[in-house]
């Protein structure tokens, strides 16, 4: 079983703060991290490999610094890492991203046939969740999104049983292999990395490819040029009028609020118990 996990480097939105007054990003403390959903994707690959054997590759598209997320993935338990980096990839939207990643996946598949691809449910910086299904279409394999459990992998029959989260519950799906999964955070808990992994990660050098290392690439479909969507304008949303601020001492404010609420009989009444 050879699993490839797509991993993205993202700014840590937990730490960067938006300054509510200027509406701008406070970049002073914006470390780059492995997209949290992708960490769960790597962890799931590790869990599957424990049962099926085989190997795990990770693939990332990004600037040279994105090597860091590949090392992080090795720490979690991946065996191999590929980084595709080239100025031609810059400014890609989801369509151009899935195009570039699928070209790299095709090359990986030639050397080590791929049985499963795992992506995160979405990247926390863009929040689209569109890249995973896009890759699946381009690789001509079925996508299964919002996965909360990989129940069983049957290598003989080449099938996999999966729980997929729905708005109200979940569905149990059987998919043929190879397939592409996008995973929710609840699929697993990230385990502490064993010491040997840490050592391996520290000295690991990923395989690095530029556009010229990939085959049959139509450059017009890469990066900004290959992206059908553009940002038209940025604006601060029309501010609603804002309501009334209650004045006075705390006690005063609280009783004013209680009065207002009690007046709102259409919203809120007190029902005497029987």
């Amino acid at each position: 079983m050879h699993i490839v996990v797509c991993v993205k480097q993202v700014p840590d939105t937990k730490i960067i703060k938006i300054n509510p007054k200027t509406n701008t990003l406070d970049r002073r403390s914006a470390p780059a991290i492995l997209n949290p959903y992708d960490a769960h994707a790597v962890q799931e690959a590790v869990k599957i490999k424990e049962i099926t054997g085989g190997s795990i590759s990770v693939l990332s598209m990004g600037p040279p610094q994105a090597t860091a997320v590949i090392k992080k993935s090795i720490e979690i338990g991946a065996d191999r890492g590929y980084l595709i980096t080239d100025r031609a990839f810059a400014g890609a939207d989801t369509l151009a991203t899935s195009y570039a990643l699928s070209k790299a996946l095709k090359r990986i598949n030639k050397d080590h046939p791929v049985n499963m691809i795992i992506c995160g449910k979405h990247a926390i910086d863009g929040d689209t969740g569109q890249v995973g299904p896009g890759i699946a279409r381009r690789m001509d394999i079925p996508p299964v999104t919002n996965v909360i459990e990989v129940t069983e992998v049957n290598q003989k029959e080449k099938t996999v049983l999966i729980k997929r989260k729905l708005t109200n519950g979940y569905e149990l799906i059987q998919s043929q292999l190879p397939c592409l999964l996008t995973v929710e955070k609840e699929i697993n808990d990230i385990e502490y990395s064993p010491m040997p992994n840490m050592i391996e990660a520290a000295r690991y050098e990923p395989i690095i490819w530029a556009v010229n290392d990939l085959e049959n690439v139509d450059r017009a479909q890469l990066g900004l040029k290959g992206s059908p969507t553009i940002v038209g304008k940025m604006f601060t949303p029309p501010r609603p009028e804002g309501g009334k601020k209650l004045e006075g001492s705390t006690d005063n404010q609280v009783s004013q609020l209680m009065e207002v609420l009690m007046e709102k009989k259409d919203l809120f009444t007190l029902q005497p118990s029987k």
């Binding site: 939207d93 989801t94 369509l95 899935s98 863009g126 929040d127 689209t128 969740g129 569109q130 995973g132 299904p133 896009g134 699946a136 279409r137 381009r138 996508p143 999104t145 919002n146 997929r164 989260k165 729905l166 708005t167 992206s227 059908p228 969507t229 949303p237």
Partner: peptide, 26 residues
């Protein structure tokens, strides 16, 4: 922008080679 709506739109956008904006609110 439900699990199924997002899944379908992402796949269709790829095959139609067109743009898709996620989680629109206006």
């Amino acid at each position: 922008a439900t699990p199924n709506g997002k899944d379908l739109a992402s796949a269709v956008a790829t095959d139609l080679s067109t743009g898709l904006t996620a989680d629109t609110t206006m």
